[in-house]
Amino acid sequence: MSHIKLSPRLAAVAQLVETKQKMADIGSDHAYLASALVEQGKVAKAIVGEVAEGPLQNAKSTVSSQGLTGSIDCRLADGLAALSKTDEVETVVIAGMGGLLIKKILEDGQSLGPFQQLVLQPNTDQEALRAWLVQNGYRISQEKMVAEGVHHYEIIVAHPGQQKLSAEDLTFGPFLRKDKGPVFVAKWQHERDRLALVLKRLEEAQQTNSMKYAEVKRAVGQIEKELD
């Protein structure tokens, strides 16, 4: 048995998981994160939830090969239906999905919460996920952005509580926009350049009076203001 080596994205997620007795990873990507956290002694037990049989078998294979079947329970279920209140899960990780899907998973499982800690890594629609959190009894307590290849991943940590966020906080992240690290700058420069190309195509198509043009132009202005 060799210890699990996590990708930069999952390693960043693992660093943000608080030391707890029990965590759950929903949509686990071969149960790598849960296995690594148990091996490190950061959590005592973990539940892995998978919505399809193939990914579930992949997770079980990893857990078995690492000799962790006594510490990690792999379950077939849709989202937070993998859990019950009697599981006494403290931290829930949902990583590598679209923000709208993560939002739906949390929404559907509200009867189980609030959880002591959420560690979320949305690939898209981060703004909508942040808005859901602050509207549903969570406060964002920490954020991190990590680069992996050409991708820039945002990780959002939330705890139960109240919080008010500005429109800019929702879009760029209250902590990320304060730190403005190199990965943050690279991501939003890339997004600004992408949207600038959209504007150019709309101009070439003589669509400067369209709602789409106004929306994209406003977004470019918002990004440039944030970067400046």
Rank of each mutant, 00 (worst) to 15 (best):
E226V: 11
L227P: 08
E224S: 12
L129M: 03
D125F: 05
D73Y: 08
V157C: 15
Q126N: 11
E215G: 12
Q162E: 14
T208V: 14
I140D: 00
L170S: 06
A147V: 07
E154W: 10
R201C: 14
I94M: 05
V17D: 08
E143G: 01
G98C: 00
L56T: 00
G27A: 04
Q189G: 11
K104W: 06
L176E: 04
N209D: 15
L202V: 12
E224P: 09
L37N: 13
V134G: 01
A82V: 12
D228K: 15
L120K: 10
P8V: 08
Q21S: 09
P122E: 08
G27I: 07
N58G: 00
V216M: 02
L106D: 13
N136G: 04
Y153Q: 04
L6A: 09
E50Q: 09
R9F: 10
I155H: 02
K103S: 08
T62N: 05
T19N: 08
L176M: 04
K187A: 02
E18R: 14
E53F: 06
K103H: 02
K22I: 10
A11F: 05
D78R: 13
H3N: 15
A36D: 14
K217R: 12
A147I: 07
G99C: 15
K42A: 00
Q206C: 02
K60E: 15
I155F: 06
E168G: 01
R177H: 14
F175G: 03
A147H: 06
F175V: 08
G113F: 06
V63N: 07
D108A: 12
T208D: 03
D73W: 05
L37H: 13
L33A: 12
W132A: 13
E203G: 01
L80Y: 15
I94D: 06
I94F: 08
Q207Y: 02
K85A: 15
A14G: 00
F172M: 11
E53P: 07
A14H: 02
Y32C: 01
A82C: 12
I47H: 00
A14Q: 01
P174F: 01
L118C: 11
R177I: 06
E39H: 01
P182R: 00
S65V: 05
D125T: 04
G137W: 00
V198H: 14
E39R: 02
M97W: 12
D87H: 05
Q126G: 14
F184N: 07
V13K: 03
H190S: 08
L101V: 09
N136D: 04
A11G: 06
L10F: 04
L101P: 02
V134K: 04
A12H: 14
A128T: 12
L101H: 07
K20W: 08
H152S: 06
G161H: 08
K42N: 00
Q121E: 08
V146C: 02
E39C: 03
